[in-house]
């Protein structure tokens, strides 16, 4: 599109985006067998592409203290384990900062307000900020707000904050390159010959079904 042409594609994209959001693929968009006659387009293997020029991330929404607290919380929510790295290793704080800068408004206020509550509560209980807490103290306060069904009614706002932060960390991690490999998501690759649902998947579903009935 040339520069002097206004972007009119937004309306149409909106509808396509909507279709994506509702997680259905209209039949018309599904590649059909008829396409198999055409040459399969091969996209370059990302691994074979020249390395991207990496520049240090510049914070946009969070201040230094908030950034450090979010980073610490991110790794408490998604730590490294035998299968993959931690949230900070996957770039989750960068994702959250960028998302908060983009969204601004209520979401930014909610996350900032939640972090402030966390520090005030830790000051009250332990006489220092969350980031200076011992592991046991961090667990003590997180256990209060990380289990919605068990939390005290007076902690409702803090629970809502933690839910939201946890969603951002989980979503940021599992949509990152590291998280996609962790799940693993195996799609977005060409299936030349569809063999049906794998037998081990069907077996597992049947096993789940049996368990559900008992």
């Amino acid at each position: 599109m040339s520069k002097d042409e206004p972007d009119k594609s937004r309306g149409a994209m909106g509808r396509r985006e909507l279709l994506k959001v509702i997680s259905t693929v209209p039949a018309a968009l599904v590649p059909l067998a008829a396409d198999a006659d055409q040459k399969i387009r091969r996209y370059p293997n990302p691994g074979a592409m020249p390395p991207k020029h990496v520049t240090a991330y510049r914070r946009q929404a969070l201040d230094e203290h908030e950034w450090k607290t979010i980073s610490m919380l991110s790794d408490l929510i998604i730590p490294a384990d035998e299968r993959s790295g931690s949230a900070t290793q996957a770039g989750v704080p960068e994702f959250i900062d960028d998302w908060l800068a983009f969204q601004g408004g209520n979401l930014l206020a909610e996350i900032r307000g939640g972090l402030t509550w966390l520090d005030i509560e830790c000051q009250r209980l332990f006489a220092h900020d969350f980031m200076d807490c011992s592991e046991a103290q961090k667990k003590q306060i997180l256990n209060r707000i990380a289990y919605p069904g068990k939390a005290a009614p007076e902690d409702a706002n803090a629970v809502a904050f933690f839910n939201h932060l946890s969603d951002l960390v989980v979503g940021g991690f599992f949509s990152s390159e590291m998280g996609v490999k962790d799940l693993p998501y195996l799609g977005n690759t060409m299936v030349a010959d569809w063999q049906g649902c794998p037998a081990n998947v069907i077996e597992k579903i049947q096993e789940n079904e049996k368990k559900q009935k008992t």
Binding site: P31, L183, G187, N188, W194, P198, V201, K204, N208
Partner: peptide
């Protein structure tokens, strides 16, 4: 659908829906 939980990883793409 809990019966779809914890399935062996497999490629769900390429066949729609």
């Amino acid at each position: 659908l809990p019966i779809l939980m914890d399935l062996p990883p497999h490629n769900c793409d390429g066949v729609g829906g």
